[in-house]
Design a protein around this nucleic acid. Structure first.
Lengths: 337, 337
DNA sequence: CTTGGCACTCGGGAACACAGAGTGCCAGAG
DNA sequence: CTCTGGCACTCTGTGTTCCCGAGTGCCAAG
């Protein structure tokens, strides 16, 4: 149905269109790629490709443009992920290594991705539910008020002020802290609710009401923060790539955390690339945009995802290479800290 | 030089231009505002206003448009800040009250401002240097590794992992923590460097090397984070207000922390409004945009600033009202937490 | 100082023509 | 059966021209 030459034609169309942003015609194709056949032949192939929905023409008499389906075929079968240059790799490494805490790692990752791909970068904070407890701290602030600080193995820190039902002396707080840490240390956050059930019985009865209050806030934190934190940057690149439709829609989508999270998608394997092209993605305001995403994590565990968003007309091989590389490096950095 | 009627004409021009986004002519002015004079008279006034640089015409034969200088006069002398409706006030209050920690307060403030003004909102985190220490926590992570957590009175939490030169037992950590807190509690962050100098002599000699390491990281944190954290949102509103020039430039400026901070400007008084109009602002990429900013803080101390950025052609009275109101509410919320 | 009148200017939209790129199809050659 | 050159056709985008109308500046009279 689609012989090799037709595929070569499709590849050539995608490449040319991506680099010129203009519908590509049979003559131009014959000139710029040596396909060894005449424009007329190419026209026939193009007709076939159009027939099957891989390309389309904006107006009756203009060149062809790849459809979402065409890009899909290109990504799946016609292109190879382009590795980064070693200079780029070094740049990534040194740039990320300079970060001192999680916030900064994430922020730098966003900048890096945006700069590398000249696209909008989206980075999710390491998931709480997939992290585990490194330490729980209870800090007395006032007589009946403490701050609860939760530190995860990925460096995330959540804090919450808790108003207590009664005053509590410092040594009792210390005991509570010790018990809490004994129970929770290393515990996966998703197991916290069950694990925490044991805590009260390990405490002297008089501390139980206070503990109950604190625990309920702790659990609440986990639930509320279940919604993942997500950050983006590089929107200036949107303005450059003259967006066919609704730059406004894109910006709106970016500001909706929920949409963003869905866009990054559910997990593939670790640093497995997900590519969503145009209409494949689940949000109608983003017709005309593609997402290239990957999971990142330390060890073999996927902690969260990151990716970029750009016009469907993007350089997939390069973009995919950059996203994959950054995902890996971020994983390494996280593992090392 | 500028009699009352000329000022009224200028005010009318600004108001009409803001609402229609089209150059406004003498006839339209006479129709829509009852100035009690004929178009011809208005034309004379307009000529005078143009002579003095308050308005200008895009082409020889079109209506007039206010210049930056014209807007400036309007803001300073011709307009009154428009208070929010009580419904809006309530909305602000409930929306902000729902926030559980500083991150969320800031995030919600951004959304609120963006929505209220239909402009890009910019919010600076409460300044570290102007905050004071609420608590310092040292959390043992491994034998020779601790996490240093700094909690400020504004709810900001900074954390840093510290590698120690030697192993240290938990009780020694506890002592160190106690001494540190005794010295620093309530201390303004800018005084920390001096204050901290006393710490080593209050410790047993064997703990001093460890303390030195920890203190140096603490000071380092303060310096590095001296650069303020700043957040923005509502960029979708930029696309709506069809920007005369360079939406791209604006987006770029927004992603430069340094530029943003300069834009918000130095302190006026607390919740004193600063308005920078077009060419008044210090960044050339932002010709055509104005900034309305205010300081916010709890009590009488300005902690940081927030504001919005939009086309010079914005509704200043409404925008100023919204910014001022939000700044006040944020201050209240921070004071209460 | 204000006003009506008047001539003038210029931007922007409509109508139109045209060049050029690209197509589809066909008939002939391998 | 596939490829190729030729040819007629179809558009879009661009440039040109033209004209309307909003708006101005100026002037002379009230």
């Amino acid at each position: 149905m689609l012989d090799d030459r037709k595929l070569a034609v499709l590849r050539a169309i995608v490449e040319d269109y991506v680099s010129t942003n203009e519908p590509v015609g049979s003559k131009a194709l014959a000139d710029r790629h040596n396909l060894g056949v005449s424009p007329a032949t190419i026209r026939n192939d193009m007709a076939a490709l159009e027939e099957q929905g891989y390309i389309t023409q904006p107006h009756t008499s203009a060149g062809r443009v790849p459809t979402d389906k065409g890009y899909r075929l290109f990504v799946d079968r016609l292109s190879q992920i382009k590795p980064l240059s070693s200079a780029e790799r070094r740049a990534i490494e040194t740039f990320l290594a300079g970060a001192v805490d999680l916030d900064e790692i994430v922020m730098r990752t966003v900048r890096l991705l945006a700069q590398l791909t000249r696209q909008v970068a989206v980075v999710q904070y390491p998931s709480l539910t997939r992290s585990s407890v490194r330490h729980v701290e209870i800090v007395p602030l006032a007589e009946r008020r403490v701050m609860l600080v939760l530190i995860t193995n990925t460096g995330r820190v959540e804090q919450r002020v808790v108003d207590l039902p009664e005053a509590i002396a410092d040594d009792r707080v210390a005991n509570l802290r010790a018990v809490l840490n004994a129970c929770l240390d290393g515990c996966g956050l998703s197991q916290v609710p069950e694990t925490v059930a044991d805590v009260p019985e390990r405490l002297p009865p008089e501390d139980r009401p206070v503990a109950a209050t604190i625990l309920s806030v702790l659990l609440e934190t986990l639930v509320e923060r279940h919604e993942e934190k997500i950050v983006f940057g590089g929107t200036a690149n949107l303005a450059a790539a003259d967006f066919s439709i609704g730059l406004r829609d894109v910006l709106e989508a970016l500001e909706e955390q929920v949409v963003l999270i869905r866009l990054l998608g559910e997990t593939g394997g670790l640093s497995e690339l997900t590519v969503r092209i145009g209409s494949e993605n689940p949000y109608s305001g983003l017709r005309g945009t593609s997402i290239v995403a990957a999971g990142y994590g330390s060890g073999d565990r996927e902690l969260a995802r990151l990716g970029v968003l750009g016009p469907t007309r993007m350089d997939y091989p390069v973009t995919m290479g950059a996203v994959r590389a950054v995902a890996r490096y971020v994983g390494q950095i996280l593992a090392g800290s």
